[in-house]
Computed example of a mutant assay.
Amino acid sequence: MNPACEAQNELVGDFNELDDPFFRYEYLLGLAAELPVMSDADKERSAKVEGCQSQVWMRADSNADGTLLFAFESDTLIVRGILRVMQLIYSGRTPADIVDCEFDLPVRAGLDDLFEAQRRSGMRSIASAVRAAAEVSS
């Protein structure tokens, strides 16, 4: 199976073990604390992800083995949690694995209902930026 999809399935399982939406939200905030801080130098205009309610920056770097490493940053704590989830799913994966693994965790993990439409749209924009970085690298 695709390693990115396996990572996503594992995270979906982790969220689904939490019955209460409040606990899912709390878990997401805990993941936000794990997201490494991006340096100010990396927060260039070209790294900004458009289409997000919050400010979001993304950097994708290629490894010698052909995998991509993603760095993310946001000015909003809950978005940092989503970015950490995306990092756990996609960072260290090949471009083919990234392209072949649609980001559907928010729906499958019961998080989609926690966010208003504008925030859900922003998550789709970030997922599109990750996919585009993978497509350029393949």
Rank of each mutant, 00 (worst) to 15 (best):
N2I: 02
D40K: 15
P106T: 08
V85N: 01
F15W: 07
A41C: 09
I89E: 00
C5W: 07
G51H: 10
F72K: 02
A4C: 08
A64S: 12
V130N: 03
A33H: 11
R124H: 10
D97A: 13
Q118C: 05
V85H: 01
I82W: 08
N9V: 05
E34C: 08
A96M: 09
L29K: 15
A32Q: 01
R108A: 13
E50R: 14
L111T: 10
C52M: 03
Q53S: 12
I78R: 07
A71V: 03
A7F: 00
D40T: 15
E73A: 15
R59Y: 02
A64Q: 11
R80V: 06
I126A: 03
Q8L: 00
V37N: 10
D65M: 05
L114E: 11
S121Q: 12
W57D: 15
R45N: 13
G122I: 04
C5E: 11
V136E: 12
A96H: 10
D61T: 12
A60T: 12
M1Q: 14
D100E: 15
Y90F: 13
N63L: 11
G13P: 01
Q87R: 15
L83V: 09
S91V: 01
S54V: 12
D100K: 12
M1I: 11
Y25L: 06
S74L: 04
R84G: 01
L11M: 11
V136N: 06
D19I: 10
R120T: 13
V107M: 13
R93V: 00
L68N: 03
F115A: 11
L35Q: 04
L88V: 00
E116W: 03
G110K: 05
I78T: 09
I89Q: 00
L88I: 02
Q53N: 10
L114G: 07
D75H: 08
R80L: 04
R119N: 04
N9S: 11
L105Y: 03
C5N: 09
A32F: 04
S39D: 15
S62I: 04
I82T: 07
G81I: 02
A132I: 07
N2H: 08
S62E: 12
A71F: 05
P95S: 11
D40R: 15
G30W: 06
T67G: 05
A117G: 08
A41H: 12
V56K: 02
G92T: 00
R108H: 13
L88K: 14
A133M: 06
I126R: 02
L88T: 02
D40N: 15
E34L: 13
S137Q: 12
D61P: 03
E44I: 13
S125V: 04
R84P: 02
A132F: 02
V136P: 03
D113N: 11
L83S: 07
L111R: 09
